[in-house]
Design a protein around this nucleic acid. Structure first.
Lengths: 182, 182
DNA sequence: GCAAAAGTGTTCTGGCTACACCCATGG
DNA sequence: CCATGGGTGTAGCCAGAACACTTTTGC
């Protein structure tokens, strides 16, 4: 999955595993894991033919020119793929709330407004830029980077640049979350 | 896993899956799932011999006379089993905080004190009976049942009986948790 | 100057914790 | 009557939400 242009997009690749092949190897054969900032195993299901299907959640940064068939996550997906995508999306939503998982969706450097769009796309509900900044800064998930992004033609104050403090999954607040607005 | 006599105990059974056999069938062959109030898939790993091992978290109620080799969860476990048990324990701890998962550990009817012992064993830190009751009642996870448990020889006020409102996993509060004491 | 975008200060709320206090029973 | 265990009342804390206000830019 990735958050691109304010939408959450997904790409589904089948992971076929050969006998005597590790899961990691099978995954690496199915997708180019260099494009993924975070990979996480989801669920293993038995198929009718006796083989096993293991689903993964892979997250790509918005600025990563990842190859693949990226499509917006909406109701146009086939039912079986939707089940996997829905599970992945639920997991993503939950972990965005209490971990630093945003690092896997946001580009290296970003403004709070850009980060907000990523969170809105992934969470599916509105998020205040003001509070998003305060929550993530307080938790130590994001830190100020040098420099500013100059405003566009329509003006406005230059936006400070931030970066995630870590590029590995960390639980930043086990007991809190980004609540949806009332 | 189960919480028994104030301790968290675990039993590890290998799940060997035959070709053309579903995962559920393989699990049912390895353990008697009738004794488990809740089953949840954890992780699938590839073994060196090319087979797959899928770990499950199964929870048994304290009053269930489950067969099996129940041992306290401590440092006496072999390293490889400990990794699975630790993952299961972490998952259990997390879900106890924001779901009604306690239904799978507590007996049908229980007093708040008994429920407290279950939570203390599973969470690994002290929990106040007062606040445990209020949190779970407010969330609607537990409800008053008829009757009281008479006090023992040492006296004391009779304890009100409670039961869990549901015996299926439900997210009772996505945005809160039982915090450990300071 | 004015609109637009970014950032800050401040208040409010709600869930949870902490702790003092009250209740009911056995001996 | 008193120790013991159970239950309630209440105050305080704190992360987060809400919102008014200030800052900095383009035109």
């Amino acid at each position: 999955m990735r958050a691109c242009d304010g939408r959450l997009e997904a790409s589904v690749e089948g992971v076929e595993r050969l006998r005597d092949e590790s899961l990691d190897a099978a995954l690496a054969r199915a997708v180019d894991v260099r494009f993924l900032a975070h990979v996480e195993q989801l669920e293993t299901r038995a198929r009718h033919d006796g083989t096993l299907a293991t689903a993964y959640l892979g997250l790509a940064r918005a600025d990563m020119p990842a190859a693949g068939d990226w499509r917006p996550v909406d109701s146009s997906w086939p039912a079986d793929e939707r089940a996997f995508v829905a599970a992945a999306q639920a997991r993503l939503r939950a972990k965005l709330s209490y971990t630093n998982l945003g690092f896997a969706l946001a580009p290296e450097l970003f403004t709070i407004s850009e980060l907000r769009e990523v969170y809105v796309a992934a969470l599916g509900y509105d998020v205040s830029a003001t509070n998003l900044q305060r929550v993530l800064v307080r938790r130590g998930a994001i830190v100020r980077a040098d420099g500013f992004r100059p405003p566009g033609r329509t003006g406005g104050r230059p936006a400070a640049l931030f970066r995630f403090a870590s590029d590995r999954l960390e639980v930043t607040d086990e007991f809190a979350a980004l609540r949806p607005p009332r």
